[in-house]
Amino acid sequence: MKIQIRKFHYGDIPEEKAGGQTSYYKSTEQSWPLWEVFIRSKQGLDHKHAGSLHAADARMAIENARDVYTRRQEGISIWVVESKNIHASDPSESESLYEPAADKIYRHPSFYDLPEEVKHM
């Protein structure tokens, strides 16, 4: 499969037109691990995934998350989890995992017709 993209957008200059150097700049540094950041926006709400960042340890991850994700009072509490510790479901299994729920409409309150006399149930 070969799809040529010839259109150049802002921030999207194709390499052959860009005249970049071929010389290589290679760092040998060991990289800081990746962390996922979860922010509680206010008391009473769940922590919600906000993004990710690199940091040497958990403390630095929290400090960096504070600088990057709460500059405009977006949060009052931060969780960080090293990304390698997050396990995710496989998209190719989504049919078997989630579709069975689609035909169980009796799980929803609106499935049941009740006489009008029964208010608020």
Binding site: G11, I13, G20, S23, Y24, Y25, S27, E29, S31, S52
Partner: peptide, 26 residues
């Protein structure tokens, strides 16, 4: 950078490409 990393390139690689002049910026 975080969004780009989800596509399978490491942060170091991206920084290297910027510093070597291989990658472009506006």
């Amino acid at each position: 950078y975080s969004a780009a990393e989800t596509l399978g390139m490491s942060r170091e690689q991206m920084i290297d490409d910027l510093l070597s002049g291989k990658a472009k910026y506006s």
